[in-house]
């Protein structure tokens, strides 16, 4: 290369670093995605995430609501908590969170030991990475915990295959004052599918997709029976 080209490269080499805000934002999103995968596994539950939230009191929820998983997550993330407990990959579709602006407690992983570096996972294993605009609303940690608990219970219903119970539970807890509206609507779509009510699932999916077009749960809903039927009817 010519000296001029080298000089040019020297000039631009360190010229486009991200901002600290970029770094914080992406880290929060990673945490949320990992939490979703963990919550969908067997070891880390939404309840644990809820405890997390409790311990973080006062934080804006927009970020941490992200940690909620409804239905099992497709993330497949294996999280090792400080106890070194490994979690198996998640199996079903998941609901992931809105963006995050604040850091959560560190997740510690053990020092690598394998000989061969692992290649990146296939794209389909890394869902739940779309993050809609953050929630502008502050909520009490109690109300958030209540919602997390509801969604956790719905998740268990769905894991048991009890869609009717999941639908009933979501119906009975309907409220306008929800911080996890997208998650609840996505859960309802999945619950209606599990309950064998595809027409209602289609309606719910349509409403969800129109009102939460950038939601992290979109892919889960699009894979559901409601969206599938919609495509057939198109």
């Amino acid at each position: 290369m010519t000296p001029e080209t080298r000089a040019f490269l020297e000039q631009v080499r360190d010229a486009e670093d991200p901002t600290p805000e970029d770094e914080r934002r992406v880290l929060a999103a990673v945490r949320a995605t990992v939490a979703v995968g963990a919550a969908a596994g067997t070891g880390v539950t939404v309840a644990k995430v809820s405890q997390w939230l409790a311990s973080l009191g006062g934080w804006k929820v927009g970020a941490l609501a992200a940690c909620v998983a409804v239905g099992a997550a497709a993330v497949g993330a294996t999280v090792t908590e400080p106890s070194n407990e490994s979690l198996p990959p998640a199996k079903a579709a998941a609901v992931a969170p809105p963006p995050q602006r604040r850091p959560a407690p560190p997740l510690v992983v053990p020092r690598p030991t394998a000989e061969t570096p692992e290649a990146p996972a296939p794209r389909q294993e890394d869902p739940a990475r779309r993050h809609p605009p953050p929630s502008k609303k502050l909520v009490t940690s109690q109300s958030l915990r209540d919602e997390l608990t509801l969604l956790e219970t719905v998740q268990l219903d769905l894991k048991r295959g009890d869609g009717a119970q999941a639908v009933e539970r979501l119906e009975s807890h309907k409220t306008d004052d929800t911080q996890l509206l997208a998650e609840r609507r996505a859960a309802m779509v999945l619950a209606l599918c599990a309950a064998g009510r595809p027409e209602l699932a289609r309606e719910a999916a349509s409403e969800f997709l129109s009102q939460h077009p950038t939601s992290a749960q979109r892919s889960a809903v699009e894979r559901s029976c409601g969206a599938a039927e919609k495509r057939l009817g198109d």
Binding site: V30, A77, T78, V109, P117, E118, P120, A121
Partner: peptide, 23 residues
């Protein structure tokens, strides 16, 4: 960029424990 960076580090998070520590 956000999504791509997030993807990278989600993979890192998931694989870190089984990764070869040399490189």
């Amino acid at each position: 960029l956000d999504d791509a960076a997030q993807d990278v580090f989600v993979v890192v998070h998931r694989k870190l424990q089984s990764f070869d520590g040399r490189s």
